[in-house]
């Protein structure tokens, strides 16, 4: 964070992207977007003017830029108590009325969350009953999710989370080790459709029974959070569930009236009105 970036520079950059490409970052939270763009300027050793000209003229640069500015940090079974609540409350409640159901991971990043879900469902004996969709705006990170290969050194933390989640065996039973990588069992991702999808500008998504959108909307301002919540509302069946990050809140969104908060600690909402 050596360089500083004015708010006006930031606005110019987001406007240029909006005009030249299909992405709209104008309603992203300024503080983190600014840090991400400063990081690009530093890594590429370029000025704001050069950045703008590359965004306008250089073929393929927007994809690189997109990968750089999205925050992809994630873990398996992140917040183990949330995953426990899924296992003990949310999924059993869905199962009361539906033998088969659908889950959407919006902003799945490199897929750790998706594999966690598949493991949870497998341990509940219902993996073959569930259709999973996993989407992200960044195709590069989505490819990594599809591959399901993670640095072995990450598995220590993942295993710790899994133990806190009270998993049935050991995470080791779900991957093989090769060349310093953990390769997730292909059978876990069989029922997963990975799809590039932009929550801001993308089309409506198919209807599902459970949406996980954790640690994604924190990168949006309140207006955009409100817009995206509207989209989630229309992508959920009535009585479907929405899980957001444990430090996120939707109380300032208008449409939150059509949801009830069923687990305040883990921030699980349920749609109660169409």
């Amino acid at each position: 964070m050596i360089k500083d970036l004015d708010i006006s520079d930031l606005r110019t950059i987001t406007e240029v992207i909006k005009k030249t490409h299909s992405y709209d970052f104008t309603n992203y939270a300024m503080s983190s977007l600014k840090r991400r763009i400063v990081r690009v300027l530093e890594n590429y050793k370029i000025s704001v003017e050069t950045l703008i000209s590359r965004l306008q003229n250089q073929e393929g640069f927007i994809e690189e830029f997109l990968t750089e500015i999205t925050v992809n940090v994630t873990e398996m079974f992140r917040d183990p108590s949330f995953w426990l609540a899924l296992k003990k409350e949310v999924i059993p409640s869905i199962l009361v009325n539906h033998e088969n159901f659908k889950i959407w991971h919006a902003g799945c990043s490199s897929g750790e969350e998706v594999y966690s879900m598949a493991i949870l469902l497998k341990e509940m004996g219902i993996l073959d009953k569930v259709t999973l969709f996993a989407s992200d705006i960044d195709p590069v990170i989505l490819d990594r999710a599809k591959k399901g290969e993670y640095p072995l050194k990450n598995m220590e933390l993942n295993e710790k989370n899994y133990i806190r989640f009270d998993g049935a065996t050991s995470l080791k039973d779900y991957y093989t080790e090769k060349d310093g990588k953990a390769i997730m069992d292909k059978s876990l991702a069989q029922a997963v459709t990975f799809k590039k999808h932009d929550l801001v500008n993308g089309p409506a998504f198919t209807k599902v029974d459970l949406i996980l959108c954790r640690n994604v909307m924190i990168y949006f301002n309140q207006k955009l959070q409100n817009d995206v919540l509207n989209k989630f509302h229309s992508s959920l069946f009535k009585y479907g569930y929405l899980a957001i990050g444990s430090k996120e809140s939707l109380i300032w969104c208008d449409i939150v009236k059509k949801f009830i908060l069923v687990n305040n600690e883990e921030k699980v909402y349920r749609k109660i009105k169409d």
Binding site: A29, S31, S32, V71, N215, I218, Y219
Partner: peptide, 15 residues
């Protein structure tokens, strides 16, 4: 934890 223009807090999971 960051401070955002408009006097709000933003959280982030950056590196």
């Amino acid at each position: 934890m960051s401070v955002e223009l408009g006097n709000t807090i933003s959280l982030s999971t950056e590196e």
